[in-house]
Design a protein around this nucleic acid. Structure first.
Lengths: 182, 182
DNA sequence: GTGCAACTTAAAGCCGACTTGAGGTCAAGC
DNA sequence: GCTTGACCTCAAGTCGGCTTTAAGTTGCAC
């Protein structure tokens, strides 16, 4: 990135409706290197010019938006790829299909929110009051097994052991992944 | 890690109120290696036996709970260290002191929740409806920054800082229809 | 006093998501 | 046809947060 603001590649040279990697970078907000990386992971594809340069269809922007949203929801790029693979690419995903995915993400977001709210309660109940009782404090006794879950936050405080249905596998399986494992 | 459940080191041998690294590991849920790593970062300390083995006071558990909560809130270990350094260690932090910190975290948590809720709305408004309109879709045009904070949330949709008049419309045009090129 | 689990250190490895660098090629505007 | 910026590949580096490995030492029960 870091192109001069007025060097709008987006409207510049190059052919009609195929985007160069630089244009795609500008428009998606990702670095060109990231786009190549995504391609190496099979997240996006490009056709090539005779000279070997990448050209992207505009639909790629949609895929990228999807990927970024997936990350935002807490999926890894690999999980995002799996989710993308389940969407028809050729006939362009229908609203229903997007909806199905979006819906599973909703619940994932809800989980995250719930977890944060739990943490909030714990904080005011434990740290907040200064007790941090070793025998009773939820912060200690959360029973946290803390799998390496999200990218950013590796170990969770975890939810209450009594809080019902176990850790719940990631959205991946809400997306229908039969495989799973991880 | 993963000691047999009944080999409770926690109640085993060793001296009265100092914990060995194994005991601390069991009780905190962290691996011993992680505890050594934390020590190397200055997050926790230990006294040593004549033979050089670490012994921890129980207060260390509190520090660890603090650290884990900090991570959960989205702080790095380094930030956690800074926060810890601001708390008196010798006279044991008072409730007020914990509260002050906890309070700042509350708002941080609130921010994260707000962000997630925003994402949720965006998802149902954009992906959910299947539009993903490039000119209008909030997923593309979102202006939220918030840094790589959340547990699961590393990269946000969007980048685009202040930038003001936002001349660089992210992904404009194209794709007005689901059909799109090709 | 011996046996053995639990401990010690330093250095290296790993994962995810990229970025950076080196060395070279393409394509478009003049 | 030349220049120049955008592009190419492949390998290696980065960062945070740990874990693993190797080789050696401690400490407690018996």
């Amino acid at each position: 990135m870091t192109a001069h603001p007025d060097a709008r590649r987006g409207s510049g040279p190059h052919s009609a409706d195929l985007l160069t990697i630089g244009q795609l970078a500008d428009r998606s907000g990702l670095a060109a290197s990231a786009l190549r990386y995504y391609e190496s992971l099979g997240l996006i594809q490009a056709t090539r010019t005779a000279g070997g340069q990448r050209r992207y269809t505009r639909g790629t922007l949609r895929r990228i938006a999807f990927i970024r949203a997936a990350q935002r929801v807490g999926l890894s790029l690999d999980e995002a790829r799996v989710a993308l693979d389940r969407l028809p690419e050729r006939p362009a995903p229908s609203g229903t299909e997007w909806s199905r995915v979006a819906e599973s993400w909703q619940s994932r977001i809800d989980e995250q929110i719930a977890e944060l709210e739990l943490l909030k309660r714990k904080l005011s109940g434990c740290i907040g009051c200064g007790c941090l009782s070793l025998t009773r404090c939820a912060l200690y006794n959360a029973g946290d097994r803390a799998g390496a879950a999200g990218p950013g936050a590796r170990y969770l405080l975890t939810r209450d052991p009594a809080a019902g249905p176990e850790p719940v596998s990631p959205v991946a399986d809400a997306l229908g992944g039969p495989s799973e494992g991880r």
